[in-house]
Nucleic acid binder design. Structure first.
Length: 669
RNA sequence: GGCGAAGUAGCUCAGUUGGUCAGAGCAGGCGGCUCAUAUCCGCCGUGUCGGGGGUUCAAAUCCCUCCUUCGCCA
């Protein structure tokens, strides 16, 4: 047996080639990169895979629209992802495109194997086809026998198709999830999957006749069909690492695989993919980790709301390292987080500039002035009790960081390091080398050495998060480089006498723009008299009274009875024209509306008016829409606004402009 | 409607298996230092741990119930 190192294999989803990268893609890929880099520092041999999904109807359509072949279209579009990653310091080992021969042959072989074993069978797919949206619907999805999206006519079509016997593996999957508590993380997602599995699984239709979709991988046993997207896409995780072609390589990586996914593709990975693997006689991946979404103003990003965060813009404005730091520091893996430039800048200024950057800058600046610009000799330290404390903290820091990373608490790992950085700043204040230098240069040198060495260790531990910046900084600290392994991160790596060279502060502060005036500031600054009176009265109570001046009219018990004019202005009321309306299945009064608000795309709005208002009378009506309500799901359908209506015992009327119809998007108020 | 998760200081959130768990950061106030990026360090928080009930010697931490928010339901 050759010497074996532990291994670690991490994947991102393959992103849909038609998409433009947004902050969510960047987050997932950076997270994968950070995990890969940490694990390599833990001593693991690592493999990191990302890529793009290139097949499917939408790609075919988009290409057609542009007058290109689908392949030409993909060749062009995939660059949006492939070229982005190096600029975010992503260290992926491979980049898979599902149109590559190395992938297609594995998909075909997998299909053939499942066909031969009877897990893929030909059956009848009964669907209802809507000419208008060129889509199939199941009987359950139809609404009164009409298309659920347009309310239009549908044709019942019985079409031969191939099915995967997913149902056969349901119990095995449930058992595996129960036996491996950290298989699907976080736990709430695991529960979600188990809940889903309480109902019997249907078999999965995995083919499309070429007459309807030709842009896909042909079934090896029936050239009239291509395989449908998921079956193709999911296999990327194993095709790249050698399934069917390089067994030792495949086994090595597959046994240690971690899939990072967005919560929107949880079922696909936890149910479709896992049952496919069972059927193929392969092991489960080690972990499936569903991360959360970046929200903007606590609202999901969407094109129609125009609030999509472009990672390139953030990188260009603030630098790749700050961007990576923020994304990793701010989000708890598995939960949603809010993205705002304000919180970004606060993290940058407080943690990177004030704490970390300033520590480097003050130490190097001091050494340059007082110590000949070189790393001083450690001697016997500063003679201060804090020496031992700092060195003990530094000694146990790698293990603590490793523990947090291994339990996916990346943000806690970072926080742990930053707490140590704060301890180092305190250490400098305690030992006061800038004073001590006048009386005891050796002790001052000892203090600076300890602080610098602590900084070196902290920087190494942050390398996976900010590789470029850390490498540069370590270079500035006496020409050091990143240690390969946590095990090598021992105290005393800095060589006394080597030159320090930090020409400028490593993390310049960014000016914080005025984001919004804070009510708390008003009494302190604008109303000194109130504050003084409060202080004179003494105690926390008085302070509280001063602090609760309802300067914006929205806080304080007194104001709660009335809405102020400002409150009213927060509600954006717009005139809209209803384009389509259809009942929501399973509900007796909800209607799904498509409403023109004069925006590029119509809004989808779910309204509870169906029991009082005939659905066929709604299209064409004008309505008043609350346009800036936070979008929410109603009965599983996203609703992007609210329709105003008045209901009493005589029925319901829509609240809308009377007389001449108004242009969609006209402001009401 | 079914299933699941969450509700902790002004803000963002930590709080393993019930017993220094009532905390951190930010914001605010006061003070100190000057090596440093108007940076750093120290001090200052009586918040019904969503409401109510229960179990226990002991609950933010377990149980019940209600309210609110969020997620999933191919």
């Amino acid at each position: 047996m050759p010497e074996s190192r532990p291994a670690y294999y991490v994947t991102t989803p393959i992103y849909y080639v038609n998409d433009r990268p947004h902050i969510g893609h960047a987050y997932c890929t950076i997270l994968a990169d950070v995990l890969r880099r940490y694990h390599s520092m833990f001593g693991c041999e690592t493999f990191f895979l990302t890529g793009v999904d290139e097949h499917g109807q939408k790609v075919e359509e988009a290409a057609k629209k542009r007058g290109l072949t689908p392949q030409q279209h993909c060749d062009e579009m995939q660059a949006h992802f492939r070229d982005l990653w190096p600029t975010l310091d992503i260290s992926n080992d491979d980049f898979i495109r599902t149109t590559e021969p190395r992938h297609e042959r594995v998909v075909k072989q997998a299909l053939q194997q499942l066909f031969d074993s009877g897990d893929i069978y030909k059956g009848e797919y009964e669907g209802f086809y809507s000419q208008r949206v060129e889509k199939f619907f199941t009987e359950d999805e139809l609404i009164d026998g009409k298309c659920p999206e347009t309310g239009g006519e549908v044709q019942r079509i019985v079409e031969a198709n191939y099915f995967f016997r997913m149902s056969r593996y349901q119990q095995r999957l449930i058992d595996h999830i129960n036996a491996n508590p950290d298989f699907i993380r976080p736990e709430s997602r695991k529960n979600e999957v188990l809940g889903f599995l309480r109902k019997p699984l249907q078999d999965l239709c995995i083919s499309r006749p070429k007459s309807r979709l030709s842009w896909g991988i042909e079934l090896p046993f029936d050239s009239d069909y291509v395989t449908y997207v998921w079956f193709d896409a999911l296999l990327n995780y194993v095709s790249v690492i050698g399934l069917f072609h390089d067994d030792p390589r495949f086994r090595k990586w597959w046994a240690v695989s971690t899939h990072l996914i967005g919560k929107d593709i949880l079922t696909t990975h936890s149910v479709y993919w896992t049952t496919m693997l069972f059927a193929l006689g392969l092991d489960m991946p080690r972990h499936i980790i569903a991360h959360g979404w970046w929200l903007v103003d606590n609202t999901k990003m969407s094109k129609s709301l125009g609030n999509v965060i472009n990672p390139l813009a953030m990188r260009d404005k603030y630098g790749v390292d700050s961007l990576r730091y923020f994304l990793m520091r701010e989000m708890v893996v598995g939960l949603d987080s809010d993205f705002s430039e304000e919180s970004f800048l606060k993290r940058h200024n407080f943690e990177l500039a004030n704490d970390l950057g300033n520590l480097a800058n003050r130490l190097v600046g001091f050494a340059a002035k007082q110590m000949g610009g070189v790393i001083p000799a450690p001697g016997t330290g500063s003679g201060h009790a804090a020496d031992a404390e700092v060195m003990a903290m530094a000694a146990e820091l790698p293990a603590r960081v490793r523990g947090h990373v291994e339990s996916l608490r990346v943000e806690t790992a970072i926080e742990t390091v930053m707490n140590f950085v704060r301890r180092l700043n305190r250490y400098v204040a305690e030992t006061e080398p800038f004073k001590v230098i006048k009386t005891d240069p050796a002790a001052a040198g000892g203090a600076v050495y300890i602080a610098l060495e602590g900084l070196r260790i902290a920087l190494n531990l942050l390398w996976p998060v900010m590789p470029k910046k850390v490498e540069n900084l370590l270079g500035a600290l006496g020409g050091n480089s990143v240690v390969g392994y946590f095990d090598d991160l021992k105290w005393g790596g800095l060589v006394p006498g080597t030159a320090l060279n930090l020409p400028e502060p490593p993390f310049p502060r960014f000016e914080l723009p005025e984001f919004e005036t804070r009510p708390a500031e008003a009494p302190a600054k604008a109303d000194k008299a109130v504050a003084d009176r409060a202080n004179a009265a003494g105690g926390a109570k008085a302070e509280k009274a001063a602090g609760s001046q309802p300067s914006d009219g929205s806080s304080g018990a007194v104001a709660s009875e009335h809405a102020t004019f400002d409150d009213f202005l927060k509600i954006k009321l717009l005139v809209g024209t209803v384009l389509t309306a259809e009942p929501v299945p399973g509900s007796d009064k909800l209607l799904k509306l498509s409403v023109d608000l004069g925006e590029p795309a119509p809004r989808q709005i779910v309204a509870g008016i169906g029991d009082r208002f005939p659905v066929e009378k709604v299209p064409g009506s004008q309505v008043t829409v609350v346009a800036n309500l936070k979008p929410r799901k109603v009965f599983g359908i996203m609703s992007e606004g609210m329709i105003l209506a008045a209901t009493d015992e005589n029925g319901l009327s829509l609240i809308a402009p009377s007389g001449t119809p108004r242009k969609p998007g006209t402001r009401v108020g």
